[in-house]
């Protein structure tokens, strides 16, 4: 066994609160991709009432419903360790409600606006329509990523402040609501992509891991590549016929519940 301090420390934050859309799969993917390369990793799962480890290398947050999202924000703010981790340059990967939590504010039940953790200069307000459906993202070129594919299901419209780059431009779907998707600021990355996002996009998983573990040898991801091609084609089929396009719009405008 390697000494414990050489293992990559992955911290899964409140999976029972921030796991509505199966984003726990992202943690599985991060852990496995290290294991397959023989890089030791230790996953610490933190639930409410437990302290957030101060020395993690990579903190992971997932999507949630309004109530649990607010609760997670309160306990993270009270704990303080995530903010200190961000200050010392730890990597944070956050999805959907998790993305919103990292910003300065977001909206909760009844349209009320509340404070986020303020780790990143982004702010989320409630959109007019919930964004539900397949999403394709053309990543910001300097990230060196292929087209990203996922599934989005959120009511938030997220505005980025100066100096906060998007993860990419939306080729299909809604994303942040202004034609961009997610954000990258330093070693903090946020996205609306479920699916979950990392199994659907192994190159994104490796980008995040490389910030912690350095350059990584490639893995055989042919099954994920074929899946991505299938999803791109499925979205493309919807966009070639006007009838399908109309139906698609109708089905994507889910009832705002």
């Amino acid at each position: 066994m390697p000494p414990p301090d050489s293992a990559v420390g992955i911290v899964a934050l409140y999976p029972s609160l921030l796991g509505t859309y199966a984003d726990g799969g992202n943690v599985t993917v991060l852990e496995q991709r290290l294991a397959w390369r023989g890089i030791p990793a230790e996953v610490v799962t933190v639930e409410v009432g437990e302290p957030v480890p101060a020395t993690g290398d990579l903190y992971v947050l997932g999507g949630a419903e309004d109530g649990p999202q607010s609760l997670a924000t309160d306990v993270l703010a009270a704990d303080g360790a995530l903010s200190r981790a961000a200050d010392r340059g730890a990597v944070i990967f956050a999805v959907c409600a998790g993305l919103q939590i990292l910003g300065t504010s977001f909206s909760v039940s009844g349209g009320r606006q509340r404070d986020g953790l303020g780790l990143v200069d982004i702010a989320t307000r409630r959109g007019e329509r919930r964004a539900v459906g397949e999403i394709l993202v053309e990543p910001t070129p300097d990230l060196g990523l292929p087209m990203l594919s996922g599934y989005e299901n959120h009511g938030g419209v997220t505005a980025r402040g100066p100096g906060v780059e998007p993860l990419g431009r939306v080729a299909y779907g809604v994303g942040n609501g202004d034609g961009t998707e997610g954000f990258v600021r330093g070693r903090i990355l946020g996205t609306y992509l479920h699916g979950p996002g990392l199994p659907r996009n192994p190159a994104l998983a490796d980008l995040v891991l490389s910030w912690v573990a350095g350059p990584l040898e490639p893995l055989d991801d042919s099954d994920a590549a074929a899946l991505r091609d299938e999803r791109v084609e499925a979205v493309g089929r919807g966009a070639t016929s006007w009838a399908k396009r109309w139906l698609d719009r109708r089905s994507r405008v889910a009832r705002a519940v």
Partner: peptide, 13 residues
């Protein structure tokens, strides 16, 4: 399909 849910993320749960 629609009655299944279009999103299969749940497979990871």
């Amino acid at each position: 399909r629609v009655p299944d849910g279009r999103d299969v993320s749940w497979l990871w749960d």
